[in-house]
Structures are given as C-alpha cells and as structure tokens.
Amino acid sequence: MTPPCVKNYMSEIEYVDQENPMNYSTMHLHTDQKSSSNKWYMPLLVVNYLCLFVGSVSSSLLSKYYFIHKGSSKWVSTWVQTLGFPLLMIPISLPYIFKLTKRTPFSDFTTKMWIMCISIGVMLGFNNLLFSWGNSYLPVSTSALLLSSQLIFNLIFSVIIVKQKITFSNLNCVILLTLSSILLALDSSNDRPRGVAQKDYLIGFLCTIGAGLMFALYLPVMERVYEKVQCYGMVMEMQIVMEAAATALATVGMAWEGGFSKMKEESQTVFDEGSKVYWVTVMGNVVTWQLCFMGTAGMVFLTCSLTGGICMTALLSMNVLGGVVVFRDNFGSFKAVSTLLCIWGFFSYVYGIYKFTNNNNNNNHSSTETIQIVRRRLDN
C-alpha cells in the first residue's frame, strides 16, 4: 500500500553531519524537524492540530457573530484574518530565547523566497476576501460544509503539483466529503437566512466555493515550498511574510472602502451588541485566525497538503455543530447525513494512515532483525 502521507526521512545536512561528527553546530541548526524520527515531531504535530481545531471553529463562529449583529464590512472581516501576523513571532522567538536553537530568525531567506512568499500572500488575501463575502450571506453550517468541496480539488492539485499518490484511503475520504457537500447543495434552497435575498445568497454560495478552490490550490503550493525547509521556525517566518502581504492587500481595500473611518461608527451606532463587544469580537477574530493559520501551516509542513486539507475538512463538522448550537442554524436530515459522511471520510483516512504506519513499523522491525542476524554471522 502506498502511504497516505507519512514523512520519515533524514535531511541531507543531518546525513553529512553523521559522516563528519565534528560539524555538530551545523546539524544542531538544521535538524530535520519534519522527520517523524525527530523528538520534536509529535509534540509539534499535536500542538499544531490543537491550534487548527481551536482556531478553525472559533474564527468561523466569531466571523459569523460579527455579521449577525449588523457588522457589514467584508473588508474588515478580511483584514482581521491576517492582521495578527506579528503574533507568530512568539513561536519563532521562544526557541531562540530559551537557546533551544542557535539559528537566527529570518537568516535563511533568499530574494527568491521573499518574492515567492509575497506572491502567495497576495493569493491568500483574495482567498480571505472570498471567504468573508460568502460568510456574510450564509449560515455557518452551510458555509462550513460547502468549504469541504475544496478537498477533491486539493487531491487533484496535490497530484499535479507535489505528485501525491492516490490510495484507497485518501480517495475514499475525498469522495465521502465531496458527497457531503453535494447533499448540502441539494438542501440549500431551504436554508437561506432571513433578510438575505436570493441573489445575495447565491453570491455567498459561489464566493464560498471560490474560497475553497483557492485554498485547495494554496495547500499543495505551500507543500512544494516547504520541500526544502527542515525548520519549523522558518515555516512560521514564511507565514509572517505571506500574511503581511495579505494584510497589505486588505489594508488597501479598507482604505478604498473607507473602512477605517467606518469601524468607529460601526462599533458605536451599528453593531447591536455595543462598542465593547464589537472590539472584543474583532480582537478575538485576530487571535483565532492566527491559531488557524499557524495550525494549517504546521500540518502541511509536518505531514502534507492533502492531510492538512482533510484535517481541516473534518473540522467542518465541528463548525456545523457550532453554528447549530450558537446561532440556532437549521439542522435537518441533509445536514445530519452530510456531517456523518464528513466524519466517516475523516476516520477512514486516519485508519489508512494507521494501517500503513503499523505495516511500515513491522517491516522496519523485520529489516532490523535481518541486519542483526547478518552481522552476527559475519562476526562469527
């Protein structure tokens, strides 16, 4: 069976250092943190998935809360998604401050890398705008399940861009999650919120699909970029540059729409929960979106773009339940079946990874025993 997506290899620099033990400092600076044999791999994986879980659910609910209580600026909603990028200096600086690494932040950047990160950041900014536009017209549960449609395109782009192997487990997962979106689309005509015109609902529907497609492209592009990166800190540094570019785009949009002057007026006279709640909502969005982006980047770096997309899609079922519990979204039979398909698809993929890893460990164990037998015979 071909692996769903498991990274277990040694960086070239580590290998060279093992041949030349005197060059310890270089190995210490560039240890391959995306290798599953690295001691930091599993803690990083768990922390990043928790960040993705908390950030994905919380940011979706807070974004919808902003629009439900008469917040109306799509550019404000877009702006706050990446405005908190300086917060990523925390995971970048802590290892350096506590002397867990000798690597200086941003020391490995090249001109080509700067240009690449800025370009991807602009694409991310447009993706955030489409998401905000769709989220302003759709219920959280509908928006969440619609975004799962990106997964089949994520698989296609992953095959083209990073040569992802198609296996039964990942193909089965993609099919189930895509069926989940189709069922939702069939039921969408009965799910339009009050006060939202049919035209606006359709715009929201299409914008959300567009956001899913752009994100499906974004993930494998990021995996391709990370192929030559072995340091988690550098991943966060690249994320800062991308989000800074996305924030610059949103800032231009805010200035063009007059969003900065309108924010104060909106908080005082438009937002029906009051000024304090308005700013708490905005700042909550800033923080939770950073958790989401940090978790996404970490998952792609430590696993692959398809696994990152599947984990995010599986979390959409939590967003659906959050929308039902917090905002009393309709939860009919179509959504129930869609959610079950979403959960089923995710666990089928997890089982595929478990099965492959278990077989791989058994094969490694057998290989080790064979090597030991050969060595004993040679010694004798």
Rank of each mutant, 00 (worst) to 15 (best):
M1L: 07
T2E: 13
C5Y: 06
P21Y: 02
H28S: 04
Q33E: 15
N38R: 10
L45N: 02
L52N: 05
L61N: 02
Y66W: 07
Y66A: 09
S72P: 02
S77F: 03
L83E: 02
M89V: 12
P95Q: 07
P95H: 11
F98Y: 11
K99T: 02
L100G: 11
K102L: 10
R103A: 03
T104S: 05
P105T: 06
V122Y: 13
N128L: 10
W133M: 15
S136P: 03
Y137K: 14
T142H: 08
L145H: 04
L146M: 14
L147N: 11
L151D: 05
I156N: 01
S158Y: 09
V162R: 03
N172M: 09
I175K: 00
L179E: 06
I182K: 12
L186K: 10
R194I: 07
F205S: 09
C207V: 12
L213M: 14
Y218W: 13
Y226H: 10
V229R: 08
Y232V: 09
M242Q: 15
E243D: 13
L249F: 14
W256Y: 14
M263D: 06
W279Y: 08
M283E: 03
N285C: 09
N285A: 01
T288F: 12
Q290F: 00
L291A: 07
V300F: 06
A314C: 14
N319A: 05
V320W: 05
V326G: 03
V326Q: 05
S338P: 01
L340D: 00
C342Q: 14
F347M: 11
G352S: 03
I353A: 01
R375K: 10
R377C: 11
L378M: 13
